[in-house]
Each structure stands twice: as C-alpha cells, then as structure tokens.
Amino acid sequence: MAQTSATITEPAATTTATTATQAPSKKDDISHRLYEDVLALLLGTMVVSLGVTLYSESVLVTGSTAGAALLIEHATGLSFGLIFFVINLPFYWLAFKRMGKAFTIKTFIAVGLVSGFSKLTPMMVDFQMLNPVYAAISGGALMGIGLLMLFRHRAGLGGINILALYLQEHFGIRAGYFQLAVDMVILVIAFLTLPFDKVLLSILGAVVLNLIIALNHRPGRYLAAR
C-alpha cells in the first residue's frame, strides 16, 4: 500500500571504537516486546483498512500493490482483500532474502490482517454520504498513519517496495525510481479506467500519505530495535 513512494529500509550499522566497546544497559534497551508488536500489527492494519475502505467506497486508488488491488476491484468487482493477499504472495521470498525472517513473518501477518479487515470493515460501517475530497484526504492520512505503525515495528505491506529494494541491490536499479515508475503505471491505468476527478483526488490522497511518512519516518527520529 501505498505507500506509493515509501520504502522500508534498515538503519545502517556504524562501527566506531566507542560503540564497539560499549554494552547497552537495560535502561537503554527499547526493543519492542511481543505484545507491543502484536498490538501494533492489529491497530496499524485496522487503521490502514479503514483508509482502504474510504478509497474503495469513493472509487479512488493509491500506489503500489494496494493501488493495483483497488484498480482490479473497481474493474472486476472482486474483493480487495482477496486480490491484495494474492498479489503479495510472490514477494515473500524476496522479503525473506532482503529483509530477514522476522520482517517477512510480520509482513505476511500484516497483509493477511489488512485483507481480512478490509472485508470486515464495510460490514461494520455504513456510509450513507461520503464526500470524495474528505475520503481522499482522510483515507490517505489513515493509510499513512497505519503504515508508520507497521514500519516502526519492522513490518510492511508493499510487495512493490520489496521488489524495488531487491532490484536495486542486485541490478543497480534505483529503488525510488522503480517505485515511481510502478506508481506512474498505476496512475496511467487509472486515467484510462476511472473518471478524471477520481484520479486527481487519488493523487491528492497520495500526497497526504507520503507527507505523513516523509515527515515522521526519518532515520534517528524513532530508535527501536527488533
């Protein structure tokens, strides 16, 4: 999801004489506990799913695998949750190779939860009237906030992000450029299949989503292990 241009990166390791000789104390250990990871996965995916529901109800799209799933949903009427889960399946091997076992397991769980919550949310919430501008801004904000929660607990949702990192590492293709190219393809398809105003609102939502991530997901701003 969208994470239309956001990528998940691990902080670079630094090896200085000072840090090499210092053992972290218990009070300096801010690694996440299991229950914290569980709560973050549940709450983060619930928030993302609510944002996805706003987009689905308003016939909007976003970037990455979530955007592709929304486009297929709008074109075929199939469930977003099922499409999103299936689209992400080919990327888990890359996630394991590039990001490690823990990240892959958390991401698999997160994708499954978003798929399930996206199916359940419309059954719990009935939109009698939904302003598309509000849906674009609020939906983008909700997805950005939910993604932040997942990023900070070493999880993600986007198979395209993982592929972009893999291509950069093995073939020298810049991850950001590849991600942008994929999102541009999704937008071109959206222009061909959706009303013009819906695409413009989708772009507005993508800007909101990426601003939230860009302003809050910076190296050094949030220090946590695991």
Rank of each mutant, 00 (worst) to 15 (best):
A224Q: 13
I83C: 03
V185W: 01
A135Q: 07
L180Y: 08
T193N: 11
V59Y: 07
T53P: 00
L223Q: 14
L211M: 15
G140F: 03
V59S: 12
V114H: 07
L82P: 00
A214L: 14
V59E: 14
I30K: 13
A135F: 06
V188I: 13
L60T: 08
V114C: 09
T65S: 12
K119E: 14
L194T: 03
N216P: 01
T15C: 07
A6P: 00
T53C: 09
I203T: 01
R226Q: 08
I160L: 14
L142E: 00
A13Q: 13
L43N: 03
E36C: 06
I173S: 02
V188G: 04
A155Q: 05
L200D: 04
V86S: 04
Q22M: 14
F171I: 14
T104K: 02
L215V: 08
A102M: 09
T65H: 05
S31W: 05
L150K: 06
L54M: 14
A110Q: 05
S49H: 03
G176W: 15
V52P: 06
D37L: 04
E169L: 14
I72S: 02
L163Y: 13
N131Y: 06
S118D: 12
I105D: 00
N131M: 06
A136K: 01
I87E: 03
R33S: 15
Y134R: 10
S118V: 15
Y166L: 11
W93H: 08
L147V: 11
A40P: 01
G81S: 05
K198A: 12
L50Y: 15
V111K: 01
G146H: 09
A102I: 05
K119T: 13
H217Q: 13
F103N: 01
I186L: 13
G172R: 12
T15F: 15
Y177F: 14
T45R: 00
A23D: 09
G139K: 07
F151D: 00
Q22F: 15
L39R: 06
L165I: 13
M99E: 10
K97I: 09
I160Y: 08
V52H: 02
G67F: 03
M149G: 10
I160P: 04
M143A: 13
Y35G: 01
M143G: 11
P132R: 03
L42W: 06
L142I: 03
L120P: 02
F196M: 15
E57D: 12
L39H: 02
S31P: 02
T76W: 05
F85N: 06
N131Q: 11
P90C: 12
E57N: 11
V185C: 09
A6H: 05
L39G: 02
K27S: 14
S202K: 00
T121S: 07
A136H: 02
A75D: 11
P11Y: 04
I109N: 03
V48D: 01
T21E: 12
P11D: 09
V207R: 00
F196C: 08
A135T: 08
Y166W: 13
T18G: 09
Q3G: 10
I105C: 03
D29T: 04
G81E: 00
W93K: 11
R226S: 10
R226Y: 02
Q22W: 10
T18I: 15
D197W: 12
L150V: 10
Q3E: 10
L187K: 09
A2V: 07
R218D: 10
G220Q: 01
K198G: 07
M129T: 12
A6L: 07
L54V: 08
V111L: 01
